[in-house]
């Protein structure tokens, strides 16, 4: 009985409970901020280590960071195209690295060891506010891309291929951020839920493959989010 109780304690999922910070009238979800600051700090640290002492023949950290940047460069170039991808590379790379860092931070770092008065530390992407913010950033990015390239002529795209499709084209602008945010949020939360339920049933060894799957799914979701963001930007630039 004691064993069951302790496994329930380990597997305890807290959905809908948050570590609230009150700043004036505003309420923040503190646990999301703490973990995303850790992720941002790690990303900054890696970039500083990679760029602090650049050499012609890259070594260790510089080598690693160059490979990473080349990977994200491929995402942007494959979607946006050789001509225009350079100015959108920072945005797409940042999206990829931040989401990837968040997913892996939630999957790898044992946050359960740190107790909060309320709620629990986990991947920042398992809070829908984070993913909606990232999706809305993507929306404004592709609007900005289209408007800067074509001016008001950008809105002609809504009448193509025929004006009958106007409502569907407008609807698409709403479904894009909706599906982007739900996809990321749902996948990350689903992984954590599956792991919690499995830990509740069998606390040892059995959840390990699912944890591995969670790590894999986290990287695929980061890849998908940044690929789709780049594809939407390309669509607006066309």
């Amino acid at each position: 009985m004691n064993l069951i109780n302790s496994s329930i304690l380990i597997a305890d999922v807290e959905i809908g409970t948050h570590y609230y910070w009150n700043v004036g009238e505003l309420v923040f979800h503190g646990q999301v901020f703490i973990v995303s600051w850790v992720v941002i700090g790690l990303l900054l640290l890696f970039s500083l280590l990679g760029a602090s002492n650049p050499k012609r023949i890259p070594e260790s950290w510089q080598n690693f960071m160059e490979a990473t940047v080349e990977f994200t460069q491929d995402i942007a170039r494959n979607q946006i195209g050789e001509n225009a991808y350079k100015s959108w590379l920072p945005f797409v790379s940042t999206l990829f690295l931040f989401i990837f860092g968040c997913n892996w931070a939630g999957a790898i770092i044992p946050w359960k060891l740190i107790l909060l008065p309320e709620g629990e530390l986990a991947a920042p992407t398992n809070d829908i506010n984070t993913t909606v913010a990232l999706a809305l950033l993507t929306s404004s990015a592709y609007f900005y891309a289209g408007l800067r390239k074509k001016g008001l002529g950008y809105f002609k795209r809504y009448l193509e291929p025929t004006p009958i499709l106007l409502p569907i084209n407008i609807l698409e602008d709403f479904t894009k951020p909706l599906s982007l945010s739900f996809r990321l949020f749902g996948n990350v939360l689903a992984d954590e839920l599956t792991i919690s339920v499995l830990v509740l049933l069998v606390p040892l060894v059995i959840p390990l493959p699912i944890m591995g799957l969670g790590i894999f799914a986290g990287s695929v979701q980061a890849l998908i989010f940044s690929t789709l963001a780049a594809a939407y930007i390309h669509e607006a630039l066309e």
Binding site: I15, G16, S179, F182, R183, F185, G186, N187, L189, A190, A217, V220, Q221, L223, I224, T227
Partner: peptide, 25 residues
């Protein structure tokens, strides 16, 4: 294949999000 599988999986995840909203929010 992996990329398109993840796209299809997203459809199930939408159902899961609805289920979670019904249960917890």
């Amino acid at each position: 294949l992996l990329l398109s599988l993840a796209f299809m999986e997203a459809l199930t995840i939408y159902g899961l999000v609805v289920a979670l909203a019904l249960l917890f929010a």
